[in-house]
Each structure stands twice: as structure tokens, then as C-alpha cells.
Amino acid sequence: MSDVQTLSLAERLGKVAYRNQGRAEAKPHIVVDTAICNSVCPHKCTTYVCPAQCYTLDEVGQVHFQFEDCIECGTCMYACDQGAVAWSYPDPETGRGVNWNLG
């Protein structure tokens, strides 16, 4: 192997140790009012600034959010200037979130 490893985001997130992966359902720590994203928001910036791409655009340009891949950086709560993101920390027992092995 002599090249520089450039991974896709999915491959990168595959290396993250998420908590409570065994739980059938984890409690979301971020709640997004996507009705705001899909009506008044002029930039839908979370779909590209989120380092884990928890926010995606579908084929008709609607924003969708999932918290399972979130790495708790906080970017979306600042980048969203439309008031659509209600951000909190994941519950250690019932939430998702990360365990950094290196950090």
C-alpha cells in the first residue's frame, strides 16, 4: 500500500465507535424542524457543513435528518440560522453519540 488513503464519509464513519448500538431504538438528542428547512431556509447549509452528513437532500430537494451518525460536534446548531435545530447532548444510557478512541 503506497498511496494516500482517502476514504468516503461512510468509510470514515465506519471507524467511529458509536454508543448503544445494540439498542433497538436510541433516543434522539437533536430534533430538527425540517418544515423550516423545506420552506423558508435559503441555503439548507446543514446538508453540506455537517461533518457526518446527518442532513441529506432527497431527489426533490427536501431536507431529511437522522441523528444516528451524529458525532456530537455541534456544527449544525451554529450553522443553522433559521431556528430549525434543537440541540442537546445524547443521554449516556438511552442516546446515541460517540466514544472517541483517540480524540
Binding site: 476514504l7 471507524k15 461533518p51 460536534c73 483517540l102
Partner: peptide
């Protein structure tokens, strides 16, 4: 690559 991380 061992780990990918992000932080504000």
C-alpha cells in the same frame, strides 16, 4: 486511517 472526528 484510524479515526475520523470533528469539533466546533
Amino acid at each position: 486511517v484510524l479515526e475520523y472526528s470533528a469539533k466546533v
